[in-house]
Nucleic acid binder design. Sequence first.
DNA 1: GTGAAAGCGCTAACAC
DNA 2: GTGTTAGCGCTTTCAC
Lengths: 342, 342
Amino acid sequence: MSERGSTPTMKDVAKAAGVGVMTVSRVINGVPVVSPALVDRVNTAIRELGYQRNHFASTLRRRGAATNTIGLIVDDVANPFYGALAGAIEDFALDKGYTVLFGSSKESPQRERELLAAFGARRVDGLVLVPTSGGRAHLAEVVRDGPPTVLVDRPADGLPVDSVVIDNQRGARDAVAHLIRGGHRRIAFLGDRLSIWTAQQRLAGYRAALDEAGIAHHPALVLDSLRTVWTAEAACRTLLAGSPSPTALFTANDVITIGALRALRDHPVPTALAGFDDFPLSEQLDPAVTVVAHDPVALGSTAAEVLFDRTEGRDSPPREVVLPTRLIVRGSSEVRPDEAAV
Amino acid sequence: MSERGSTPTMKDVAKAAGVGVMTVSRVINGVPVVSPALVDRVNTAIRELGYQRNHFASTLRRRGAATNTIGLIVDDVANPFYGALAGAIEDFALDKGYTVLFGSSKESPQRERELLAAFGARRVDGLVLVPTSGGRAHLAEVVRDGPPTVLVDRPADGLPVDSVVIDNQRGARDAVAHLIRGGHRRIAFLGDRLSIWTAQQRLAGYRAALDEAGIAHHPALVLDSLRTVWTAEAACRTLLAGSPSPTALFTANDVITIGALRALRDHPVPTALAGFDDFPLSEQLDPAVTVVAHDPVALGSTAAEVLFDRTEGRDSPPREVVLPTRLIVRGSSEVRPDEAAV
DNA sequence: GTGAAAGCGCTAACAC
DNA sequence: GTGTTAGCGCTTTCAC
């Protein structure tokens, strides 16, 4: 079978089948002009040699031909949210006959740049990315010189590029308004680094809800830069021990929600909680956790849809698609302020 | 800057810099023979044109040169376990200067074949895969003709290929032995499709633990083919309502554990539970859940390590690396059988 | 040091 | 229908 060490080429197949390389090429590409007898001989040779076409050599001659590859950069695949997002995009791409080059930026602009360079050198036909918060300067180049690009989960921020995001501000506002309707007036905000756009937006939503209800802002009740379960837990404990202590918490992402839940577990005073991001088991906890839910799969497939619209030649101004969130009220937000005030 | 529609080539750069293409090539590859003046001119031209080397064209001439790309196929990235695995492999690959082509097989041999073909056509230098359960026939070809390959989370199963797995049988045996030590004798097994190797192994571990304790097997207490939270929940309810009902459950993966927890929530008789796979919040539940933990990140980085050992030329017989599991005892397994017997 | 020519695996264009 | 030639963007080889 494979007598040579290196992978067989089309020439090897041609020789084995006793035909010219063009006949092999035609058979492989399904050009329907080759006589059945030759098709057979070529296919046999292909099978015997274990030949596999070199996809890149084939795109080389047709200058600027599609590589049928797209690049995907998320914050971190190990995060279930981005895993689900990546899965949805891959599904869509595979359907269209595309393969996915993939990387996690880990919120590092440096790593993002490296990945973009590597993908660019591999001539991806399109790019889906969750951009880092570290400035849009290098993205501007990509958008200008690179392949069609769609940003997901973070906004275009002035760049002429398509984007798909969820309505963070509205989601946060809904959750906080719900706590206010429950009678709470001392509501704490626990969020991630405010350099991250989603964190900012959720804080803005929190403030909007307070404003609408005519509740004065209390700076001591706003904590940010919470990046892990452990820091969130610690911050939450401090907050609960302080004065005035909040009767309700709004936690601005799933990691922080989990940290807060840990802090609340052994806290003597019942405290209401609503969090951004649904998470597995939010329903099984006691009490079940009220959350602002949104759908990473919808986010991913919408982004892929927008991207393939572009690669297939649609030429229109950049658009921003905003996906809705949904407030799921469960037990954790039903604690009354008077219980907390004990 | 970019006056032409298509991406600039090396020739464009050479012309712009007023040098030959070879000088450009040498500058790009850092061959230290070019005079500083020319290096400058070339770099300026590169910047002005926004030139990016075509990675594939460059590998073409050096026949069989590394594409610096590896392929990764997991069951499903949307599953946090595989997301974490993928993240660890990507980290390792990026460190080595490799880019990752990625896909989810969704446990479909057909889709696995498509991905392998797409990756092969793109001449990946290595392959990490969680193989589907659908036979190893097409994998045999890949192992024979393809690039260095490592299987993860599933065994080589006779194929001459490296693999990295966790000790499923031992993990299950430990968990069930722990339940037995707690006094339980009617212990149910709830597992996934037994065509999946890990499910089989975990069942084997369950049986081994029973055998060691001299407890007779009871077929009615063994349920398999549980694929979702909902089917697991339903199966568990049926089981609990049956006779003899188990006093303890061993759930063979995280999805099933969660389903069982749902069923147990409104079940009047306290029932012990230990599950395979740790999951977020396993600690926060009430009672906290006893699990067999294992580390997807270690699994991934070990697999990547084994792979790069190969790509860097190590030539030794295929090896199987088995990673240990760890039983984390929490409250859920501490229910006594006499409480259950009420 | 630098560049011209040849060739990597493949396909477009053209001849037969 | 089929094969030949040229050329995609790059690197190797070998002159200068």
